[in-house]
Design a protein around this nucleic acid. Structure first.
Length: 468
RNA sequence: GGUAGGGUGGCCGAGUGGUUGAAGGCGCCGGUCUUGAAAACCGGUAGGCCCGUCAGGGUCUCGCGGGUUCGAAUCCCGCCUCUACCGCCA
């Protein structure tokens, strides 16, 4: 959520930001509602103030009179006198009460719309993020590949044989069972079997150990079933509501519905919602491994085959909450991306870094760098029907500024005693089974076996390759 | 799942319809005293929102939401949550 006061001071900053992100927001309506809302608030509060004053003034008298009333006989002249005195005294506060009721109804009529528009105003992109319409306008920052491999030349040229896709590799080694996965849960579901499951557990554990043992992140286990406020607080709602599985417990008489989280980020960021943390607790560095659920609404027909786009997967995630300082946030962004690069290099996977353009940013981030691994089995087919290979997104590193902490009401007290909303960042460490795609496709060997990179072997009982 | 009892400020804890945003204590911050510290004493010590250039003023918040009332921490309803006992169970 943006700061409404910042919006009042500089509305054009936010409207320009929304335009760059290609998010439609009715700013005219927001401005009008905001002015009206403030007018009503002032009006209501003035009257309430008067009401409170009156109440203190005549309240005790009213109490006394009502006490006397009890002792007086029904129909007596004295009773009538007291009664008329009572209604005289009550007239002024009663009138105020009615006026306030009318104003409050008006307030309640506009407040939800005001809030819902406010909630959809995206975080403006950082000033140095390249302007662009879609992922086609993203800018490549750099790439890396293990010695002797060059994605530009293609798999065949580097390795001397035509690559098989991960689908073929997985099938020949019985690492996954798509048919039964679909039988049980429907489209985009799968079962990992044998080496598939071992490989997934190994790579996740390797990533998790790296974050905790080497990088100093606190290991956390978080709920993946959360209440709506967690989704709103982390900025996934309302814009991404259709992407989350919704457990309608309220229909069974329970008080609240629940939602399955699409990333461990929700749980990690939700931990300190509503809290005021000590500045000395910053930066908060958390990592988790969690199951992620995504409906993939609107992605029908896209990446339907294989392990690329599925409804349920496992992910090691890292989040950082640091002081409200742009330079510090940028520094952490680099550091977190560095962790990912180290991991990918240990896994010997070619990758590239893309600076996402304004049009490719989500509502909540002001800066995002995607990391894509090169996947030999992706891309166009050549004349012989062999895939040319292509980069596919495996990681995403975002800087959110105070957008998320503001929504979560997560604050810290700075050196001057002032409360501040800290800046948040998050970044994939390793998401599986998607990461298995480049892992299998890059390390496949001419005879159909798959070589296991050295760094991963300790997590697989020392195994050096996967053979039929 | 059943029954019973709770949720008050950073913490403990008082408060069952009328200057109670909230006594008292602890903690914390500042000051006096002291060579210094401790003790003692004095003062301060939540946040959101609105108005205001500032000073300041107002309003809301006693788990959350709604209701009753001229007026609610206090009464009523729903929800969340904690504790104890019983039942069931990985």
């Amino acid at each position: 959520m943006i700061d409404i006061k910042a919006y009042r001071d500089a509305p054009e900053r936010f409207s320009a930001g929304a335009r760059a992100k290609q998010v439609a927001v009715d700013f005219g309506r927001l401005g009008a509602l905001d002015a009206e809302r403030r007018r009503l608030l002032t009006d209501i509060e003035t009257r309430k103030s008067e009401q409170n004053r009156l109440s203190k003034e005549i309240g005790p008298q009213l109490g006394q009179l009502k006490g006397r009333l009890k002792g007086l006989a029904e129909g007596s002249a004295e009773r009538a006198a007291v009664q008329s005195q009572l209604s005289e005294l009550e007239a002024a506060p009663l009138a105020l009460k009615n006026q306030i009721a009318v104003l409050e109804e008006e307030f309640r009529r506009i407040e939800p719309e005001w809030e819902s528009i406010l909630m959809t105003v995206p975080q403006p992109p950082a000033t140095d993020v390249p302007v662009g319409a879609s992922s086609d306008d993203n800018v490549e920052l750099r790439q890396w590949a293990p010695a002797g491999f060059d994605p530009a030349r293609g798999f065949m040229a580097c390795r001397g044989f035509a690559p098989r896709t991960h689908l073929e590799i997985v099938k020949s080694h019985r690492m996954a069972d798509f048919e039964r996965g679909v039988k049980m849960s429907g489209t985009r579901h799968y079962i990992l079997t044998g080496w598939g499951m071992r490989l997934q557990q190994a790579v996740l554990r390797m990533a998790f150990d790296m974050m905790t043992n080497e990088n100093g992140f606190t290991p956390i286990g978080v709920p993946v079933i959360v209440q709506e406020q967690c989704m709103v607080g982390t900025g996934f709602f309302p814009a991404g509501r259709e992407q989350a599985y919704h457990i309608e417990e309220s229909r069974r008489g329970a008080g609240h519905d629940l939602f399955l989280t699409g990333t461990g980020e929700v749980g990690l960021m939700g931990i300190h919602a509503g809290e005021i943390v000590a500045e000395s607790d910053l930066p908060i560095r958390y990592t988790t491994v969690s199951t992620c659920f995504r409906r993939e609404a609107g992605a029908a027909g896209k990446d339907t085959a294989g392990l690329y786009r599925i409804h349920q997967f496992e992910k090691v995630e890292q989040v950082v909450v640091c002081r409200a300082d742009d330079a510090e946030s940028r520094q952490w962004h680099k550091t977190m991306i560095g962790f990912v690069e180290t991991l990918l290099q240990r896994l010997e996977l070619p990758y590239r870094l893309l600076q996402c353009c304004t049009g490719d940013l989500g509502v909540k981030n002001e800066d995002m760098i995607d990391i894509e691994c090169w996947m030999p089995g992706r891309g166009e087919l050549d004349a012989k029907g062999v895939p040319q290979g292509a980069y596919g997104e495996t990681h995403s590193a975002s800087r959110l500024g105070d957008f998320q902490t503001r929504r979560l009401n997560l604050r810290y007290r700075d050196a001057n005693g002032k409360l501040q909303f800290p800046y948040a960042l998050n970044n994939t460490v390793c998401a599986s089974p998607r990461i298995l795609i480049p892992l299998l496709e890059i390390h496949q060997q001419a005879d159909g076996s798959v070589r296991i990179p050295e760094a991963l072997r300790p997590y697989l009982g020392g195994a050096a390759e996967i053979r039929a």
